[in-house]
């Protein structure tokens, strides 16, 4: 289990592993928003929490197609499925590795990008907290999408279509926490909902991912 986690982390940091791509994508998308909506700082301040959440979500999505596809192509997925690790554990560990290499950097980058979008000062803390609580769900749900489409040629776009609707609850409550935080409103309800969604996803999604992976490996 530790072996699989460290292998996935090493692979992602080595050449061609794709670490930082999602982060760069997040940066570019966020920087382009003021170009498209204009430079009014009040407008940017209003949309900043939503834009940052949407950017983080898309950046997360971008890196999902490599999550299981590489292991499928070189045959390691077959070998992992016959190894003593339960497949539920394999997908959980891979989702965790994905979160460390994608979700966590986004959490730390978001406040910097908040400056670019004129995010109100009280919002920074809640933006970070909402992303920290919400991004694990993005990785776990994304792993399910990757398991569904593993082995399909050009499966990346199909996976986006399958995964994005599943991201909706996390996006709604995550962006709501950040928005209410920026406006200094009461935010316990969306934060609890966001945490609940993440906890449920972490608890249940690995079983679904492992089940579809078993079918896809046949």
């Amino acid at each position: 289990m530790i072996a699989l986690l460290s292998r996935d982390l090493i692979l992602s940091f080595r050449a061609g592993g794709g670490f930082g791509l999602a982060l760069a994508f997040f940066l570019i998308v966020t920087v382009m928003v003021p170009f498209s909506v204009g430079p009014q700082s009040s407008l940017l301040a209003t949309i900043a929490p939503g834009v940052l959440w949407l950017g983080a979500l898309l950046a997360c999505l971008l890196s999902l197609d490599r999550l299981l596809a590489l292991d499928w192509e070189d045959g390691s997925l077959d070998l992992l499925a016959t190894a003593p690790l339960p497949l539920e554990m394999v997908v959980s560990v891979k989702a965790f590795a994905h979160w460390i290499t994608t979700g966590l950097p986004l959490v730390f980058a978001a406040p910097l990008l908040g400056v670019l979008l004129n995010l109100p000062a009280p919002g920074y803390q809640w933006l970070v907290i909402s992303l920290l609580v919400g991004t694990p769900a993005l990785s776990v749900i994304g792993t399910f999408g990757a398991a569904l489409t593993v082995g399909l040629k050009r499966g990346g776009l199909l996976m986006s279509l399958l995964v994005l609707p599943l991201y909706v609850p996390t996006l709604i409550f995550g962006a709501e926490v950040a928005r209410r935080g920026a406006l200094e409103m009461e935010l316990a309800t969306p934060l609890v909902m966001l945490g609940g969604i993440t906890a449920a996803c972490i608890a249940l999604m690995p079983f679904a991912s492992a089940a579809v992976l078993r079918i896809n490996l046949r």
């Binding site: 072996a3 692979l11 080595r14 061609g16 390691s76 077959d78 070998l79």
Partner: peptide, 23 residues
Amino acid sequence: AHADGIKPTLSVAENLGFWAQVF
């Protein structure tokens, strides 16, 4: 199987060591 499950960016020893740890 036909595919060896080898990671090209890991060294030979790292590839083997990974499977040793898994098993």
